[in-house]
Amino acid sequence: MKVLVAVKRVIDYNVKIRVKADHTDVDLTNVKMAMNPFCEIAVEEAVRLKEKGVATEVVAVTIGPKAAQEQLRTALALGADRAVHVETEERVESLAAAKLLAKVVEEEQPNLVILGKQAIDTDNNQTGQMLAALAGLPQGTFASEVVVEGDKVQVTREIDGGLQTVELSLPAIVTTDLRLNEPRYAKLPDIMKAKKKPLDVKSPADYGVEVASRLTLLKVESPAERKGGIKVGSVDELVDKLKNEAKVL
């Protein structure tokens, strides 16, 4: 069985972003970039399926600028067998990403596609669902457990009230939640080996997909800053402040 994993290059999750002075966007110059944390979980799940003998091949795919090759090399170092880079310098919205991924799915015919539930830059939480719709495949989003059995996959999903388990016919689309697994770190020898693994470079035009933005970003602002408050010295003082100053008790 073949597993396709979609990985996105995003700002490192530890970095606190700044908004550009002209309010056109956030400022990403010289900011540390990394693989989206939910995509790390997606790669880990695919690699574990391979280690269990369920998957035979893991293909990593990204859509993004030249530099996004770094994230594909990371995926290869973590255990993916080969990679596809759809290279574009444009800002790619979730719908365009899903259209391109649908083309890759058509070409690669994977049995399972694993994506992150959400990219931590746009916080969109859309691409996997859009891909499922476009490819006509069932979806198991926000997965905390994935069990492949024959031509079916059982996905346990983190939903608002707790957990829900659904059974999907393969091929299917899965998006990862935080509790699915704990991703490993790439080891140095694997990072070296990853440099020799195959990596195909394509363009959106190769797939006949238009990536131009549909939404106009009019403005990006900083949120209202919270002013730090005070430290209270005791529980009595806290209760007094909440009652008489904040008036929330």
């Binding site: 919205e93 979730s94 719908l95 899903a98 969109n124 939480n125 859309q126 691409t127 996997g128 669902q129 859009m130 891909l131 499922a132 719709a133 476009l134 979806q139 989003t141 926000f142 999903r157 983190e158 939903i159 608002d160 549909r214 939404l215």
Partner: peptide
């Protein structure tokens, strides 16, 4: 919600609009 997030992107994609 997890329901809204699960289903609306599908509708947007099938209607070829952004979400």
């Amino acid at each position: 919600s997890t329901t809204g997030k699960n289903v609306l992107p599908r509708v947007a994609a099938l209607k070829d609009v952004s979400q």
